[in-house]
Amino acid sequence: MKPIIQAEKIIKKYRMGTEVVSVLNSIDLNIYPGEILAILGTSGSGKTTFLNLAAGLERPTKGDIIIDGHNLNKISEKKMAVFRRRYIGFVFQLYNLVPSLTALENAVLPLIFEGVPARERDKKGRELLKEMGLGNRMRHKPSELSGGQRQRVSIARAMINNPRIIFADEPTGNLDSKTTVEILNLLTSTVRASGQTLMMVTHDIKVADYGDRIVEMVDGNIFNDEPNGSSGLPPEEGKEKKS
């Protein structure tokens, strides 16, 4: 199968004053369509950096990221917005909702930039939020929602324009263990249901266990890359294991 994301010899260095910090040391990784990939690593190992590079939010110092045949190095910053709109959805640890907008408005934000008429996008947004279990929270501002509810809104936002790939950086980093399970179940089941690819970053082995494949990073290198021990298990069984 052709990979949807190819990372080829990715090197990322930051210049801190006179010092150069090497964060990623020549990473090679292929991610395949429909895969749920967990990137596991200790703090500072370069997980977030790699995810940002893979999503085209940052440029590698060296190496290529190829998404669905498009080399991100060849896409200008200006065109990247349109590219992201088409291919990528994001879920952040800190939700990153727009505080002044309601849950519904936050969820449909990508459609606003896409130019979808208000009626159409609101209909889509309502349906999606209902699926996320937020049917009675549409008009709430983020500050009026719990952490778990906020993350549901942000998942809805990532899914609303049905992108091919979802990137999630510590999506449960700020949630308690019960909510973590709920959110992870929601995230993985929706991704699977719509045949999307999920790249999830975490430092928590329990969270990583939701992946079909776990890539372990240490100090900017891939230390280990193998299918999840329980690989081949249908998601239902995975869920049972957690709950």
């Binding site: 709109r85 990153n96 909702l97 934000l109 930039f113």
Partner: peptide, 16 residues
Amino acid sequence: TREIGIIKVIGASFAD
């Protein structure tokens, strides 16, 4: 700043 970053990540173009 943060909000501008968010909308850029989720697909706001330069023109937007």
